[in-house]
Structure formats: C-alpha cells, structure tokens
Design a binder for these strands. Structure first.
Length: 389
DNA sequence: TCTGGGGTCCTAGGACCC
DNA sequence: TCTGGGGTCCTAGGACCC
C-alpha cells in the first residue's frame, strides 16, 4: 500500500517552453506567448516572470512592464502534439490518467509501484523522460488526494518534486492563503476575507454551517474538504470513449468595438459555422442556443433559446443567434465581443429530425456536409459563406 | 488601447406537473 | 374561498479553471 498514490504533473510555462525549443537563442530573455492587439498572455517564461509578467496579463500591459519582451505567436498544432506525446508517457506508467488540460494531468500510480518503485521515483522518472524526449521541464506534486497533489506541484515549481505524506497534510495546507484553494477565485477570497478567513487553516477551523452560510451549501462543503485535505483520490481517466462535451461554443473579441448590425450578424455567421462544424465532427447536436454579448464597458449578458429539436446545422444556429441578438433591441450600444454556444448536446444519432412536408431545412444540412468534405480536403479557408468572403 | 477563448458548475426564480 | 412539497425544465447570471 502506498500512502501517496496521486501525482499531479504540470508542465513549467508550457506554451513558452515549447515555443522556445525552436528559439534556443531566446532562452535567457523575457519571452511571452500570446495574441496581439487585445489579447492576453498565455504563458510567460521564468525570465519574464521576474518582470511581473504572468498568464492572463493583458498584452497592453506587457510592453509597459517590460519593453524589451519577446512576444511569440501561439502554435496550437505543436502544443497539441507535444501534449499528446506527454500524455502517452503518462499512460506508459499507469492507465489511470486524468488529463486536466494540454499541460497538466493527475496520475494514480497505485498499480505501478511494484513495477516502477515508489511514487517519488516514478515522478523523477517521468520528469527525466519528458525532459529528454520533449526538451521541456515539469513539476510534480505527490499526495494522497487530488487537491493536495495539485497544491504540491505548485510548490514544486519550477522543475521539482514535492511530496506531502498524510501526516504532513494539515501542516502543509493550513498556512496557505485561502486563494490557493481550488474554486476560490478573486470574489470568493474577498468574501471569505470579510469573514476574517485569510488562511486555509482559518477555513478548516470554521464550523461547516458558518462556512455554508457565507459561500453557499455546495462551495462551503467543498472548501471544508479542501481545507482538511479530504477531497477525492479517485481519478476519472479520459481514455477511450470518454464523455461527450456538454456544450460547444465560440466567441470573438472585435478588433474595435462595433455597433454595426451587419458586422455583428456576419460575425455570428462565422461563429455559428465554426461551432456547427465542430459539432458535426464530434457527431453531436444540441437544442439550446446561447448568444453572448460583451459591451464596450466589459459587462456581458447572455440570452438563450431552447428549440424543440436538436441541430448541428450552421444556418439553424445562426438564425437562432441572430434572433436573440435582434430581440435585445440594442440602440447604438457598442459591442466588444459576441459569442455563440450550443448546449444540451446529445449524440447526433439519437436525433430524428421530423420531416415536414415541403421542408427546406434538409437542404441546409446537406450543404453543411458538403462544406465539411471540402474543408477536410482543401482547408477551412477554402469554403466560406459568400458574406464572409 | 486594460482585461482571450475554451469550457464547467452552481444558484435562483418561475413555470408546470404530480 | 386554502395550502404543501418535490421534481424537472428553462432562463440568466456569475464564479471559476486552464
């Protein structure tokens, strides 16, 4: 029996590290990966972090903080392929791998200790393989539960391993800031602070009922577990036929805020096409269409409509989104962003479209599939609605 | 020139049904 | 003439995570 079977493996500054493999000349310089214009930082290397640059920082502030920073464009195809290789390395160690994102995963190594040695040894083995094969470093947290392992990997960064044995859990957790807990963001931290709860230990020693009155039943119970390190240790391996997504969506920030209906409706068409294409590729359809609008002042609203039948047809989704937009009745309100999301996804095979006599919709579904075939052959740029050309 | 884009989950109220 | 609870679906908003 191993006491600490859960590993949390987290790549160090993943996007930046991968991008720097192609540019070894830049390793000693501050480098961030991010979009241009109104984007944010996706990853900052450790040199850049010394200037206060970090993930999610607006690019407009990046150059002010560090005028000589090197900005690299994200190359998602490469990130995805490096990630896939890393996940393969994990699965060679244990089949129980729960991927969190491209650059992070939980591993249950309970069944691997006999073959590969104790969890720490497995952690070092993984780090060495990933370094040799991918040329990037990672950090590993080792503990009995998911959240403690994750907090441990954060402590291990960069390029290290931290083990928290069961006997050390509370002395590890309790001095931490409440904001370190999973699920505690800016708002919840401020709320807890108003109750005088600053550290994880403060939360741990607050009666459950009091905690629940402050942050709600669900989060209260959750935080109580996290504060005592009694959260889950069972992983949900996402290999093979995994659960389908519950929703798919796309949104886009305009280069400049706009109140031009024509521009907005055209963008909704592009987004609807993008979402519908991904739905068809995944073999799902959905009934609830949600429009999202973000105004120039950064406030956002959503409007949704549930239809009687699920669809994966671009025209259907676009029409629903446009109706929701028109129903807002905006008068010269400048929009920063629009988004389209489809929820309540079900496998397409379970949807039987009622064929109404004289129905024209069928033609649109056919047209979509023709577009899909052409896109697969010639690329996304080749086939677009006339209004997007 | 502040603040991306992909998601998940929770809350809460109202409708409607039993 | 009154009043109850539970369950599900829909909508809107919000917090959070990577």
């Amino acid at each position: 029996m191993t006491e600490t079977p859960i590993l949390h493996v987290d790549m160090d500054a993943f996007y930046a590290s991968v991008a720097l493999r192609e540019r070894p000349d830049l390793v000693d310089q501050p480098v961030v990966v991010g979009g241009s214009g109104r984007g944010v930082v996706l990853a900052a290397n450790y040199v850049a972090r010394r200037y206060g640059l970090c993930s999610a920082l607006p690019m407009t502030r990046v150059r002010r903080l560090c005028p000589h920073v090197v900005v690299l464009e994200p190359d998602y195809a490469t990130f995805t392929s490096v990630s896939a290789s890393v996940m393969e390395t994990f699965r060679a160690v244990t089949p129980i791998v729960e991927a969190v994102s491209l650059d992070e995963a939980f591993l249950d190594v309970r069944g691997s200790v006999r073959r590969l040695g104790p969890p720490t040894q497995i952690a070092e083995r993984l780090r060495s393989i990933i370094h040799d094969e991918q040329g990037i470093t990672c950090s590993v947290g080792v503990a009995a539960t998911v959240s403690v392992a994750k907090l441990a990997s954060r402590r291990a960064k960069p390029d290290g391993v931290v083990v928290v044995p069961p006997g050390a859990v509370t002395s590890f957790l309790h001095p931490l800031d409440v904001g370190e807990l999973y699920g505690v963001g800016e708002k919840t931290q401020a709320l807890l602070q108003r109750f005088g709860l600053l550290t994880v230990g403060d939360v741990a020693h607050t009666p459950l009922r009091t905690l629940q009155r402050a942050v709600g039943d669900h989060l209260g119970r959750e935080l109580h577990h996290l504060a005592w390190g009694t959260d889950r240790s069972d992983l949900a391996p996402r290999v093979g036929p995994h659960e389908p997504e519950r929703s798919m969506g796309a949104d886009e920030t305009f280069v400049r805020d706009t109140d031009d209906r024509e521009v907005i409706v055209r963008e909704l068409l592009r987004l609807a096409g993008k979402v519908a294409g991904r739905m068809r590729a995944a073999g799902v359809a959905g009934r609830t269409i949600t429009l999202k609008v973000r105004f120039a002042d950064f406030t956002a609203i959503t409007r949704s409509r549930t239809m009687s039948e699920a669809t994966d047809v671009t025209v259907d989704i676009h029409r629903a989104a446009t109706r929701l937009y028109d129903a807002l009745g905006l008068q010269r309100a400048r929009l920063r962003l629009v988004g389209v999301r489809v929820e309540g996804l079900v496998p397409r095979a379970t949807v039987h479209r009622q064929l109404v006599l004289g129905e024209t919709e069928h033609g649109w579904a056919e047209a979509d599939r023709a577009v899909d075939r052409a896109t697969r052959r010639f690329g996304a740029a080749a086939v677009r609605p006339a209004s997007l050309v």
